[in-house]
Design a protein around this nucleic acid. Structure first.
Lengths: 254, 254
DNA sequence: AAGTGGTCTAGACCACTAC
DNA sequence: TAGTGGTCTAGACCACTTA
């Protein structure tokens, strides 16, 4: 398998990158597994190591691959909450990051509304799973999540499986359904607590809440989850993904 | 000037990168100017072109330098609002990005509060300039900014200069004070409109508002501005900097 | 035509990990 | 010791811009 179809774009490292992405999407290697060495990939693609490295560089920058010097290059996966705070951005006003305690509130099968279907890239009225979580920090419930996923991709999802999952939700997606969340897009608004949310969050009806609409994507920007979160920001804040781009290791932090 | 002090870290491209950053901070080249060609930098630093490219690669990824094939490599600057939406993240609920109409509401000299001083890295009670803007989209005021900057860095800032600036605020910082904003950090909360904000935003007192606390940074993470924004999210949303990292040009968008 | 950045090569040597 | 990724070199050739 060489890469000589340099028709459009004609950049070998882009071709190699997309070949790797396609192989990942086809589960040629699963989360946590090593991909072939740079030398082997260079032979396989019929290009030089430097070009393979450039392709891998981009995939590493996108958190899709992970390199370990002396060991190999691995398919990134959500493990032991290492990347947890990349997607969980609610912190204490002081800035302290804590892991939330999650409780499943509801679980049901339903039909996708038009807007959800559009976001998930499925037909309106297609079957979806829909469930709700409450998240507590330091013993206080600060956030309610309403989550919707397409049934075909998560076929066989049950309330018990969700309730008994040993790790984070995205870890669960990955281990059970081989759905690896690579990125999210979020839109934020200020809203007012209705009676349901007020009761769940222990605030008075009419209290201001931060509402976050999230779409989570997997390889090649395939949408896999829609989520609407309501946050009580009395004692917590949403940490905007900073535009501070200088990597921390440049500032002496290992 | 060669780079042979490979004491700590010992990576030539990191040394080159920091040498470039130091030269930028010292204004060896100003915003929009070209830096020397890769070949010249390689000679100057006594390293190979490939290594210079790796240093520049990182600075380009951090929006500090901009490459133009056939032309040269330039010091990034805010020009003609090209990077405007990197820092202005309020969009219509449909997702349409519009440029706001800005109006200066107030301007004064004041003493830094303890919290502002901490964020700006200055002494409490140090002199600061403090001003306020209203931002309108499609004719409606949707956002009020309260902005604080340290006096020494912006010495001589006047109300008239602010009011008559021809372009964006960060453009103005750069052209007049040689302060180039490279990144921001934001924290978001849901609040309630007080009477002042309610009047300015044309909502009823008690309406929910999105409050954004921003710290803007220049080269080497020096804080240069603190800003508190209040947004009426009835018809607009805050676009969270997405964790979607695949560059758009990989998806066929030029 | 001359100069620039963009891509690609075919190595070398080093640092790290596992056995 | 063998294999991996990490850094670096010294070019080649291409695409692009300006003159």
């Amino acid at each position: 398998m060489t890469i000589d179809n340099l028709g459009i774009g004609g950049k070998r490292y882009k071709e190699a990158k997309h070949a790797l992405l396609a192989a990942l999407a086809a589960q040629e290697w699963k989360g946590g597994e090593a991909i072939p060495s740079e030398r082997r990939l260079a032979e396989r693609f019929g290009i030089s190591i430097g070009t393979v490295r450039k392709a891998i560089d981009e995939l590493v920058a996108e958190n899709i691959l992970v390199r370990h010097q002396g060991l190999g290059t691995f398919v990134a996966h959500h493990q032991r909450d290492r990347h947890f705070f990349r997607f969980f951005r609610v912190v204490g006003v002081g800035g302290d990051k804590r892991y939330p305690t999650v409780e499943l509130l509801s679980f049901e099968q339903a039909k996708a509304s038009a807007s959800v279907a559009r976001l998930l890239g499925i037909e309106a009225n297609a079957t979806v799973y829909q469930f709700s979580n409450s998240l507590a920090l330091e013993g206080e419930v600060v956030m309610i999540d309403r989550i919707i996923v397409a049934e075909p991709r998560f076929r066989g999802l049950t309330e018990d499986a969700l309730r008994e999952r040993p790790s984070t939700l995205y870890n669960f997606y990955q281990d059970v359904f081989h759905v690896y969340v690579t990125g999210i897009e979020e839109r934020l608004r200020a809203t007012i607590a209705d009676h349901t949310l007020a009761a769940l969050l222990d605030v008075s009806a009419g209290a201001p809440l931060l509402e976050i609409q999230r779409v989570a994507y997997s390889y090649q920007q395939v949408p896999v989850e829609v989520r609407i979160s309501s946050v009580n920001t009395a004692k917590h804040e949403y940490l905007g993904a900073s535009t501070l781009t200088t990597p921390s290791y440049d500032r002496g932090v290992p």
